[in-house]
């Protein structure tokens, strides 16, 4: 199996690290971080056009040959999310969508009822849906059943950097999933990205951990290496945990 290629729907994505663009101080810093991360797929948000912001982030992603993954960030209802996804498809000419339907600003946790409703509508409308979901194995299964191309459970709430708070749930989602599992949200540092991959996730999606790090380019490098290392370790077959020590050097009496 090719270690670096992530397959989502009928798409081959050349990196298991999906990046976000939110939080970067400016486009120059973002560009260096994206290049260092080795990402091949990166999220953008849809907002009202503003002469000041322009379409700089799109131009940047096109220049770096990074595929665009529009999100529905800020949507609270299925109806809002479906409209935002359709606008994104029209503006960006992609059927990929990171579906986000959050319940409130304080937690930014997904609203499972609205999320599942929106996912079903978008799949029916021909989208390749990557839903940002809770670390709930039952909801992940339901999202797969309605036709999502991946499931993207959170490690912890968006932007918290609290890592993976419920590794066992992530393992259960991985064990049951027939589509790629992408650990999305909560990653703070490289060891947590590696853990996500060791738990069996197919990819990691992160933004804040890199864009708000003191040195985004260096942290992006760390994340690239962590995702590669975690993926290799997962598939290398780790040793079983033992209670007592087991010498790794020969017995002196032999």
């Amino acid at each position: 199996m090719d270690g670096t290629t992530l397959v989502v729907g009928d798409r081959k994505i050349a990196s298991r690290l999906i990046m976000g663009t939110g939080g970067a101080a400016n486009l120059e810093v973002l560009e260096r971080a994206l290049v260092a991360s080795g990402t091949a797929l990166t999220t953008v948000a849809m907002r009202r056009v503003d002469a000041a912001t322009g379409t700089g982030v799109l131009d940047l992603l096109r220049r770096l040959d990074i595929e665009v993954l529009p999100n529905t960030a800020g949507c609270r209802t299925a109806a809002e999310a479906v409209l935002t996804a359709r606008l994104a498809r029209e503006a960006l000419e992609t059927e990929l969508v990171k579906l986000e339907v959050v319940a409130d600003e304080r937690t930014l946790l997904p609203d499972p009822v609205e999320l599942l409703d929106a996912a079903e509508q978008l799949v029916d409308d021909g989208f390749t849906v990557l839903p940002y979901t809770n670390d709930d194995p039952v909801l992940a299964r339901r999202l797969e059943q309605v036709g999502c191309a991946a499931v993207m459970p959170l490690g912890s709430p968006i932007g918290t950097g609290l890592g993976i708070r419920n590794p066992h749930n992530i393992e259960m989602i991985v064990a049951e999933a027939g589509v790629p599992v992408v650990l999305d949200a909560g990653i703070g540092t490289a060891s947590e990205a590696a853990l996500a991959m060791e738990l069996g996730c197919d990819a990691v999606l992160l933004a804040t951990a890199v864009t708000r790090a003191a040195d985004p380019e260096r942290m992006a490098t760390a994340m690239r290496l962590a995702v590669e290392a975690g993926h290799a370790a997962r598939h290398a077959g780790r040793i079983p945990r033992r209670y007592w020590a087991r010498a790794s050097s020969p017995d002196p009496d032999d």
């Binding site: 976000g20 663009t21 939110g22 939080g23 970067a24 973002l30 999220t43 953008v44 948000a45 849809m46 907002r47 009202r48 056009v49 912001t53 379409t55 982030v57 799109l58 665009v68 993954l69 529009p70 999100n71 960030a73 935002t84 606008l87 994104a88 503006a91 960006l92 990171k98 986000e100 933004a207």
Partner: peptide
């Protein structure tokens, strides 16, 4: 009328 484009996010 709403006119949207892609911005940094996510």
């Amino acid at each position: 009328v709403e006119v949207l484009t892609a911005v940094q996010g996510g």
